[in-house]
Design a protein around this nucleic acid. Sequence first.
DNA 1: CCGATCGTCAACCGATCGGTTGAATATGGG
DNA 2: CCCATATTCAACCGATCGGTTGACGATCGG
Lengths: 117, 117
Amino acid sequence: MTHPLDSIFAALADPTRREILRMLLEDDMAVTDVAHPFAMSLAAISKHLTILVSAGLITQEKRGRVKWCKLEPDALRAAAIWMQSFGQFEPVNLDAFEAFLSHELQVQTQIDPIPTP
Amino acid sequence: MTHPLDSIFAALADPTRREILRMLLEDDMAVTDVAHPFAMSLAAISKHLTILVSAGLITQEKRGRVKWCKLEPDALRAAAIWMQSFGQFEPVNLDAFEAFLSHELQVQTQIDPIPTP
DNA sequence: CCGATCGTCAACCGATCGGTTGAATATGGG
DNA sequence: CCCATATTCAACCGATCGGTTGACGATCGG
């Protein structure tokens, strides 16, 4: 019914969920630990994680009381491939990547309206 | 307050908007012509286009009565770069790309059929 | 000038989103 | 066994989304 890209891009459209993915890039995490840095309820994070699971971007495995969250970077492949079709730009540019990351960190807390020339 | 990636990914999350981008990949188009293949009102397409403009994915230029829409593939660069950070996967995999495209064509059902050779 | 075309605006609609709170369900430790 | 911990569920809320319809301003052609 709905295209897989719908849920993948929709999941990526929220900054909280992108930050969760960034955290999981470093290591697998329990739900409570994922929630810890955020200023919102555990239930809200639990919902975000459900959305990420539905999009296939993460998987969860329950061991005992603890549910572990694991990044599934392959799910981004479809989205990356789709975007490649619009990319005259070269596939990987690590310089641009680092420049972007430093900009990313600054932008987190500042107002940054859409550039409309 | 909102990150540029928010609006880019949100814009990409809708299949109508992705299809519009795909159409604009071939050539610049007037708003009416963009709307033509879709089974929805012109006003709805006009809204989709403003969302794409806000995300920076397209630009519009009015010449006479006609407003021309132009793809801005550079806007996808930020999103592509962000996704690269999750990619242990190799930058471009053309086999996977073709496989994905054939699947993509099958899934599109909400618009008028595309002549498949 | 007149009528048709191009495109947006405004109001409205139901559905979904992102968040809250409070209760409920496992599970583990002492 | 009891209690704390880990996580989800359910109901609710305001805001936003994706769509409609009808009216409207601009612009072109004859």
